[in-house]
């Protein structure tokens, strides 16, 4: 005898498993004293060139490493290896984002306690990565000058879930008539108060300020 369907309250976050794992990763990173920075952007915004520049500058003075997500190739890891910092690739196959379990598996080859900073390069995608906490201390969203100043308004969620915005490829800003003031205003509209850096991975312009900011972040974490 059926009385028809009954409504049962459950209240469960769909990404609970990922969130719990991300929390555990964050605790591991903190215990090991590693400052973890993740990078998100659209494909072609210059994440790998940016990371190569960051690793090359930090490697001689800090114990840095990188975990790089890519759909199908290992090209990024090969490029980043030129920095001499330890780099591991996570080939995601058809998966368009990294999640906490992929990061956990990627960590297996690292000794976290021997690192000061770990960079995680997400798959180039401005939508899907916004849903997944990776346990990082800081999330950088990259926006290149070739992409258009209104990108933050088109993808507000990824900018809203990130902590810092980095405008890349500033060496060609004039050639593509990039309007930095408009881009900054749009970032501030979707994430008021967001810290913004402008850099050129190619010339190195603006990198010192950003590296100082990251290093300070690491020191603040270690003092807590």
């Amino acid at each position: 005898m059926s009385s028809g369907p009954r409504l049962v309250e459950v209240r469960q976050n769909v990404l609970k498993q990922n969130d719990l794992l991300a929390r555990r990763l964050r605790e591991r990173f903190r215990a090991a004293g590693v400052f973890v920075v993740s990078l998100v952007s659209s494909p072609g915004a210059g994440k790998t060139a940016f990371l190569e520049s960051v690793l090359t500058r930090l490697h001689p003075v800090r114990r840095v490493a990188a975990l790089v997500g890519d759909l199908a190739t290992e090209n990024d890891a090969a490029r980043l290896a030129r920095s001499k910092a330890p780099v591991r690739q996570i080939v995601t196959g058809t998966v368009c984002h990294l999640d906490a379990s992929m990061v956990e598996r990627g960590l297996e080859e690292f000794r976290l306690e021997e690192l000061d900073m770990l960079f995680i390069e997400n798959v180039g995608n401005l939508v899907c990565p916004s849903s997944y906490d990776l346990g990082e201390s800081l999330r950088l969203v990259l926006l290149s000058v070739t992409e258009g100043e209104d990108k933050p308004l088109k993808y507000p969620t990824i900018f809203n879930t990130a902590d810092v915005a980095v405008i890349t490829k500033t060496d060609i800003a004039a050639a593509v008539e990039f309007d930095a003031a408009a881009a900054r205003a749009n970032i501030q509209s979707v994430r008021p108060g967001m810290r913004i850096f402008e850099v050129s991975s190619k010339t190195g312009e603006g990198m010192d300020g950003l590296l100082q900011f990251l290093t300070e972040g690491k020191e603040v974490m270690s003092d807590e």
Partner: peptide, 16 residues
């Protein structure tokens, strides 16, 4: 942000 990030199953309709 106070609300707006929800991705939450709140209830199920179940048949015995």
């Amino acid at each position: 942000v106070v609300r707006g990030r929800e991705l939450e199953v709140v209830a199920l309709e179940l048949e015995q």
